[in-house]
Amino acid sequence: MFRIVLKYGVIAGLVVGAALLGVSMAYGGQPPPDWGMAAGFASMLVALSAVFVGIKHQRDTAGGGVIRFWPAFGLGLAISLVASLIYVAAWELSLVLIDNDFAAMFAGQMVERAKEKGLSGEALAAAVQQAREFEAMYRNPLLRMPMTFVEIFPVGMLVSLVSALVLRNPRVLPARA
């Protein structure tokens, strides 16, 4: 089972990591337009389809066409964990390759959004202070890496849950003879 976790986790991680690196390099570290978040989550779903394939592979080979929910869910979580760790590594690599101050740029965008909303005076000062706190926090890799991990791992949990629920039924995509 360890080989399945590693194989499908690395596949998912490389797919989502390549998408992340590609977009980061294409936009020079600037967040892409409004569609960027949707495209990011879509790439996560595409990459994490490896969870479904990994669980099905385990069910069809080692399980003789049958797998219970909890083992399937656990396998999916393990694959998601590996993919998420590779995603974090890809983000850290993109921060190095882009070589711009992402934390300052993002904090600046937070202030700009507050101004666009029409905030002024004390409310704007609070938004500026919040942006500064975010910038300081994001510069710490021990805080940044878990934040990055939490971007993808809940998606992996959801994919694992759905995959385990679907694949526990041996009549769904049965093993070929």
Rank of each mutant, 00 (worst) to 15 (best):
K7D: 02
K7M: 05
G9N: 01
V10D: 00
I11C: 06
G13T: 00
V15N: 04
V16M: 11
V16S: 13
A18T: 13
A19F: 12
L20T: 12
M25F: 14
A26I: 03
G29I: 08
P31Y: 00
W35P: 05
M37T: 15
A38G: 15
V46Q: 04
V46F: 08
L48S: 06
S49W: 12
A50S: 15
V51D: 09
F52Y: 15
F52C: 05
K56M: 10
Q58T: 07
D60M: 09
T61R: 10
T61A: 06
A62I: 06
G64Q: 03
V66A: 10
V66W: 10
R68A: 15
A72K: 07
A78P: 03
A78C: 09
I79S: 07
S80I: 05
S84Q: 06
V88H: 05
V88Q: 06
V88G: 11
A89R: 08
A90C: 09
A90T: 09
A90K: 08
W91F: 13
L95W: 05
F102M: 15
A103T: 08
M110S: 14
M110W: 01
V111A: 12
A114G: 12
K115P: 08
K115Y: 05
E116R: 12
K117R: 15
G118V: 08
S120H: 10
A123Y: 02
A123S: 13
L124H: 10
L124F: 12
V128D: 14
Q129T: 13
Q129P: 02
Q130H: 09
A131T: 07
F134L: 12
E135C: 07
E135F: 04
M137T: 11
N140E: 11
N140Q: 13
L142M: 11
R144V: 01
P146C: 10
F149V: 05
S160A: 12
R171G: 03
L173C: 05
P174N: 03
